[in-house]
Amino acid sequence: MSMMGDAISHAVLPGLAVAFLVTGSRASVPMFLGAAVVGVLTALFTEWVRGLGKVDEGASMGVVFTSLFALGLLLVVQAADHVDLDPGCVLYGAIELTPLDTVTLAGREVPRVVVMLGVVFLLNLTCVLVLYKELQISSFDPALATTLGINARGLHFLLMTLVAVTAVASFETVGNILVVAMLVVPAATAFLLTRRLSVLLVLAVGFGVGSAVVGHVAALAVPAAFGYASTNTAGMMALTSGVGLLVVMVVTLLRRGQPLRD
């Protein structure tokens, strides 16, 4: 499942490129549509490759997302000949530039991406709160969910769409690396500490926020301490989340003598 988020965040690239090529703009709505469509397609393709090719789900995902990602890169390079859709930006984002692009909200100037990501955050929060038990059962035991009349397949696609939309909303700002890191690492860290889903969700969000704040400060402070200019913020945030996971792992190992898993 954590692979699926990774896969989708890569695979949405052709969706973005096509949306851009078709509309000729980077407006949010076509981008989201492109991402949502490709998000669902990724989940579908993965199912097909697994079913028809009789390969393991991980392998199937690997095939689908690398192919789609490559296709996306080709399209982006094609499009970038004409306009400013920069492959570099797609990889590590431009979080440092966000304050320059603002909109007016309730009489105050706020960065445009804050509004966009705020909306996506509320969308995700609503879905998780409203569909908590449905998402839980269809992740844990989709067959049982189906026999109870809960459409596990539909929920799977909804989840994949949310991942795709979230990834796209974040791409422009923070880039692919941080998106992938934030999809997996905070949740994995929280999983080391708890076996309760509700607690895990809150902890994971906490770790994500913590990594962002610490990473931001570290991006400014750490290179400066060695006499260099500040480094890429998104990269440092991703690295911080990884270090956080390592720290938690070591601490749990020392305290329990073994990971919680056993």
């Binding site: 839980q136 844990f140 049982l144 809960i150 895990l200």
Partner: peptide, 25 residues
């Protein structure tokens, strides 16, 4: 058929049997 590492308790798994009756949302 399921992943027993999934973060739920025995009680929560049993309660899942009621989800059909509880209804959506």
């Amino acid at each position: 058929s399921v992943d027993w590492d999934f973060p739920v308790s025995a009680l929560e798994v049993v309660a899942m049997g009621l989800y059909g009756r509880i209804g959506w949302f």
